[in-house]
């Protein structure tokens, strides 16, 4: 608690979002601290690199996504196929690139869903307080008590599978912690002087939440978001393991790994490359998240 209070004291002097965005000592300090953490910095660059490749995939992929060569079958990495080919003779590099798009998209979009719901929910509950807060947080407790994995499995089974549903289902599970964090932050911030000042000059609730509360709760939210993305990507992989993930011929890293595990002794490259891709991204996100946490001096309440 003490640590986050010091953060708040620094931010409490600002009362304008423009000023907040235009840079200030807090964010500058954070950047300086982050730069000291070489691992986090490297992670950031790795993520940017992989992100760019995935964005450009449709133009730079060496082969067509569905292009098969049944006669070739599974072949080891070679000059023609850098990552080798799968059992249907499809180029693995191409598939890893396209799979990355899906995996990253799932990670980002589901996290965005979680972020939106969680922040809104937590901000409203924390700001309004009283009975509304109690009811809203009780709802969060209820969903917490659902066994998550099974809940998602059930959802996927009941409603069939679509990418959209996958995003929503995962987002629907991941917003809870976010809501709790934001609520805690908001409760604290709300009692600070500058917010009371805003109330006294008659700003509307929505405006106060948007302009004061959310920007000030941003630190923990950024950190938690960075750490949610890898969780979501793992969850997607888990669903692929159960056969509830992405539909073929579409693919994701989770799907590629789940398939690669089955033949890890015969065709190790089918596991190694997608496995490395996923692990590198997950490591990077986790290190970046931890680095940000240190840099922004955030203590996550529950994680």
């Amino acid at each position: 608690m003490t640590a986050s209070n010091s953060t708040l004291n620094q931010t409490s002097t600002m009362n304008d979002i423009e000023q907040f965005e235009s840079g200030n000592s807090l964010w500058h300090d954070a950047w300086v601290r982050l730069r000291k953490n070489k691992l986090a910095l490297v992670s950031l660059f790795v993520l940017i690199f992989i992100g760019v490749i995935c964005l450009l995939t449709p133009w730079i992929a060496p082969y067509g996504y569905e292009q098969q060569d049944l006669a070739l079958g599974a072949s080891a990495p070679s000059a023609a196929h850098w990552f080798g080919t799968d059992t249907l003779g499809r180029d693995l590099l191409t598939r890893v690139m396209y799979g990355g798009r899906v995996s990253l998209a799932v990670g980002l979009i589901a996290t965005a869903v979680a972020l939106t719901i969680g922040v809104t929910w937590g901000a409203i509950a924390g700001y309004t307080g009283g009975r509304v807060d109690a009811i809203m947080m009780r709802l969060v407790d209820i969903i917490y008590a659902l066994p998550f994995m099974i809940f998602i499995v059930l959802l996927m089974v009941v409603f069939g599978r679509s990418l959209l549903l996958l995003f929503l289902a995962i987002g629907a599970v991941e917003w809870l912690t976010m809501a709790r964090i934001v609520r805690g932050q908001v409760q604290t911030i709300r009692q600070l002087e500058f917010v009371e000042a805003a109330i006294s000059i008659g700003l509307s609730k929505a405006a106060i939440i948007r302009r004061h509360i959310i920007p000030n709760a941003l630190g923990p939210v950024i950190v938690y978001t960075t750490l949610t993305i890898p969780n979501v990507m793992l969850l997607e992989a888990f669903l692929s393991f159960l056969g509830l993930g992405i539909q073929p011929p579409e693919s994701s890293w989770g799907v590629l790994i789940a398939n690669g595990v089955e033949s890890m002794e015969e065709y190790p490259w089918l596991l190694i490359f997608p496995g490395l891709a996923l692990s590198i991204v997950l490591f990077s996100l986790n290190f970046l998240g931890d680095g940000l946490r240190d840099a922004l001096d955030v203590r996550a309440s529950k994680d």
Binding site: P230, I257, V261, L278, L282, N286
Partner: peptide, 8 residues
Amino acid sequence: GICMPAFL
């Protein structure tokens, strides 16, 4: 453990 799926 959190950078690698358990099924891997």
